[in-house]
Amino acid sequence: MKFAVVVFPGSNCDVDMLHAVKDELGQEAEYVWHDADDLSQYDGILLPGGFSYGDYLRSGAIAHLSKVMAEVKKAAEAGKPVLGVCNGFQILLESGLLPGAMLRNKNLKFICKPVELKVENNETMFSSLYEKGESIKVPVAHGEGNYYCDEETLRALQENNQIVFTYADDVNGSLQNIAGIVNERGNVLGMMPHPERAVDELLGSADGLKLFQSIVKQWRESHVVNA
């Protein structure tokens, strides 16, 4: 499976993201600059964390208008897995690929620590190797991770089973402790915690590995069927 790790000016988790899929999983992966105009050769798109364009105006606001995002939308429409972590999640929200928006953390602090997450939905291409209700340890590092959406959107998220991860405890004030959501089709996941920073016990946790392994598993299965 071949992954693109999209790099914006100000991305800073791109190296970790590439490491997770390339070194830990042995998949192909390449950095792709934000002005790329063709992502058709990639099977999966990874939007890493960081502070794209200095987070000017709003987190992800300027990045979502960069050239590569039109290609990311095409990949999403084609049903390819698109994962946005932290700033990547914020970019997906700004682009409208996922519903809602991020507010500043309730306590106004930049929160950087390992947190406990609960797997709410293990029937997505990103979470199939977890157990439903499984508790996993993954670090967060953000100042604006306080997920917000209106009531109607929240109801839709719940009814369609789009909430994939929640925080076990209230970390940042997020509505319903939401940590990660998928789109209706289930091929675009945005999450604030960093699974790419939890891919080896040496890093404090290897609980993020299953997320990437789930993506590869789904890809393999769909390609065996098609072969």
Binding site: L57, R58, A61, I62, L65, L93, E94, P99, G100, A101, L103, Y148, C149, D150
Partner: peptide, 9 residues
């Protein structure tokens, strides 16, 4: 609508 504000919030 496109950039300066986020209509969600």
């Amino acid at each position: 609508e496109k950039l300066l504000s986020n209509p969600v919030i």
